[in-house]
Design a protein around this nucleic acid. Sequence first.
DNA 1: CCTCAAGTGTTGACACTGTCTACATCCACA
DNA 2: TGTGGATGTAGACAGTGTCAACACTTGAGG
Lengths: 230, 230
Amino acid sequence: MLRMSTSFCYAPGMATKRPYHHGNLKPVLLQAAVGLIAEVGPAAFTLREVARRAGISHNAPYRHFREKDELLAAVATEGFERLAEALGAPEKPTRTSTPTPALRRFQDSGLAYIRFALSAPEHLLVMFDWPLATDRYPELSAAAKRAFSVLVGLVEAAQREGSLPGGDPLPLACIAWSLVHGVAKLAIAHRLPFKSESEILRFAAGAIEALHQGMAPTQPLGLRHRGQIP
Amino acid sequence: MLRMSTSFCYAPGMATKRPYHHGNLKPVLLQAAVGLIAEVGPAAFTLREVARRAGISHNAPYRHFREKDELLAAVATEGFERLAEALGAPEKPTRTSTPTPALRRFQDSGLAYIRFALSAPEHLLVMFDWPLATDRYPELSAAAKRAFSVLVGLVEAAQREGSLPGGDPLPLACIAWSLVHGVAKLAIAHRLPFKSESEILRFAAGAIEALHQGMAPTQPLGLRHRGQIP
DNA sequence: CCTCAAGTGTTGACACTGTCTACATCCACA
DNA sequence: TGTGGATGTAGACAGTGTCAACACTTGAGG
């Protein structure tokens, strides 16, 4: 059951003896944690197994992370960074050199969100659903905020372009985020009647389009009201 | 740290001695599990603590649940039943005797979903996000399916009423579910910029209304395509 | 050169967990 | 009057997160 570190290996046959101090353990641990979570999920995630995979003693991680949750928070942080990148990533370049409309980039970011979620469902679980005392890990909140601000930026661009109603971009961003997050979470939980990723993405595109019709600038949002809400 | 059973108590001073066989343990365990999860969440949930709260030995639960996950699955099942009830529950009766329109009932079910989620966030976690081998617990899948079918029924009623486009109700139900689920999950994770429950519900009502505008029957869904919007 | 303090990794312990096996008790029915 | 099955208990085991004590390495200042 013992595994050797894969990231600090010596040439075979050279009478290898790992030095007492690893020298680069923290990122290695983070990497191992990401891998382990992707494999078994945060519920079965174990600090000692991470240590095993890094080839170190079960207590070495405590020199770099105060506790198990801090390592999980680091994983979540890394997830938000990857998510922000995915949201803001430029289109796969097409032949046409006409710039992609902002609305289109906004909608595509929704699909990117879902693609990210489907490719790293356990990661999403740590990022959004794990009971981490987020106030204890400010980097986590900051990374989450950065990811959200990418989304807000896309909304604002679409507003400037005139394809979304003006005013505070926050509610619009929140609505879009909610829809896309819901699709992603339900798809991950296998609660949607779709099998393949492409089916899910097609469904998501339809949902996004439907929502956009409802948010279209011809019908300003603020003017609509239903009866009172208890 | 020892707690006595609260649900099988004898009159004080009557030389109490609990009989060897509890006689009604399974529902008591389920109840205790629901309470414990509401308090500490599924991550910190412990079979032994459930047993302690029920006032029995740490191994007694194994006579009623094959393993920890089976108890969690029972909790999730109970959650889906409560959710189905909440979704289908009739409006709080108003003075007017005119029947509530189906569309209104459909939209209100979305708010009911969110209210349920906010009142039992840890429950929702077990229901949707916990890695339970759902095929091992068929009652869980069945209960989830029943809850979803309530939603589909509401969509169909709104379709008959003419306030939603006809055709397969499933995609419509899935879109609505996704939106509402997303709002609920993000709100629980404190990732939405709202503080009070009423703020969240007001936001949700706006989102639901926006989505409805986009799904309204005057603009059949299938005809719309992304690309340029004139 | 020596020292020595800080940073980093290891060993051993502890309480706690899920789950296994063996045993105790009680009730229904032959 | 057994007696077997259902239900509850006690004890054990490996595995976990975390703490305390110790070991090794390095680099700065004498």
